[in-house]
């Protein structure tokens, strides 16, 4: 091995002396031209293969095996036992599957809809505001966008705190008759938001919408700015109403932006983990699981059921890949990847 590798490395490169006089500078590196892009790509490709593609394969592989403590220990691990579709069977038979799938889907649908609605309205508003006011609002929404997910979660947990939270204080300000009429109660002191799955998800929706509408707003604004103003002038001359201008000009021209935003938001909201984990206080409340929290809980509680966790992750990834497919098709349509 040792000898051959010395030779293979080109210890006695015959072309070495000629290099100095070469009229074509690109030969100096000794790489033929066609090989250059592959050489540049190689490190990145290796990283992607080792850290994303191989684990992806492994995830699928593990989902057909029983993987516990013995299999993952560093010293002298035992090989995992092949169990076929057992993991999948126990997922689909589990009550948790339906609750966590319901939580995942309902949360994603509601959050995506609210985020896009609010984001688009704010984007349209920013386009109408004067330059100073617009900058002021953009800087404000940046603050929400920039807050790290972990900080988002603790801040909203604090705002919705049962005793000293601002939200309960505000709800107590409502006139009693109004509060009774809308919520059927007038005293909100000590209202625990995080014990019940529905109110927990309510807070989660508010927190995630709060953190993600700025991106939609700024993207919609960028899209609006790219529409030539002549179109609007022409519409005004023809006496078009604001609504029909939006329907006939703004919306069709922003459609590619919207389709990307919808898919990106769906993907992000489908796999929400950090905020849910922190708001729910870890994995204690099984009712509040979504698919990613459930997968985590199975794989990292004791005893760890990594195979089962992997199978849940496969189901989640499968759903997301279908959504991604739509996204990729849209990107390829609108941009030159060729």
């Amino acid at each position: 091995m040792a000898q051959t590798s010395t030779v293979a490395r080109g210890g006695g490169d015959p072309s070495a002396p000629a290099r100095r006089h070469s009229p074509r500078p690109r030969r100096r590196t000794g790489l033929p031209n066609w090989l250059v892009p592959y050489a540049l790509l190689l490190p990145g490709l290796l990283v992607i293969a080792a850290l994303l593609l191989y684990p992806l394969y492994q995830m699928v592989d593990m989902s057909f095996h029983q993987v516990g403590l013995r299999q993952i220990r560093a010293i002298n691990p035992t090989p995992a036992e092949f169990v076929g579709l057992d993991n999948y069977n126990s997922i689909f038979e589990s009550d948790l599957f339906w609750t966590s799938l319901r939580n995942t889907v309902v949360f994603a649908v509601v959050t995506v809809a609210l985020t896009l609605l609010l984001g688009t309205l704010v984007g349209l508003l920013l386009n109408k505001l004067g330059p100073k006011m617009s900058t002021f609002v953009v800087v404000g929404i940046m603050a929400a966008w920039a807050t790290p997910p972990t900080a988002q979660a603790v801040v909203w947990k604090w705002l919705f705190d049962s005793d000293a939270g601002v939200v309960n204080w505000t709800l107590n300000l409502l006139p009693d008759w109004l509060s009774n009429l809308v919520f059927g109660r007038s005293d909100w002191s000590g209202q625990p938001w995080f014990n019940d799955t529905i109110t927990l998800y309510l807070v989660l929706i508010v927190a995630v919408v709060w953190a993600s509408f700025p991106f939609i707003a700024v993207s919609v604004l960028a899209g609006l700015k790219s529409i030539p103003s002549e179109l609007y002038e022409a519409a005004r001359m023809d006496g078009a109403t604001a609504l029909s201008t939006f329907r006939k000009i703004t919306f069709p021209l922003l459609k590619p932006v919207f389709s990307v935003l919808v898919v990106l938001s769906t993907i992000w909201d489908f796999k929400v983990f950090t905020q849910l984990y922190l708001l729910a206080g870890g994995t204690v409340n099984r009712d509040a699981f979504n698919l990613s929290l459930w997968s985590y809980a199975e794989a990292f509680s004791s005893p760890p059921k990594m195979g089962l966790g992997a199978a849940i992750a496969v189901v989640l990834t499968g759903i997301l890949l279908v959504i991604t497919f739509v996204y990729v098709r849209n990107i390829i349509k609108t941009e030159d990847v060729r």
Partner: peptide
């Protein structure tokens, strides 16, 4: 688009 949370388990064992 692959959820990082899904890769958690295989990357953990790796």
């Amino acid at each position: 688009m692959v959820p990082a949370e899904a890769l958690l388990i295989p990357l953990f064992t790796m």
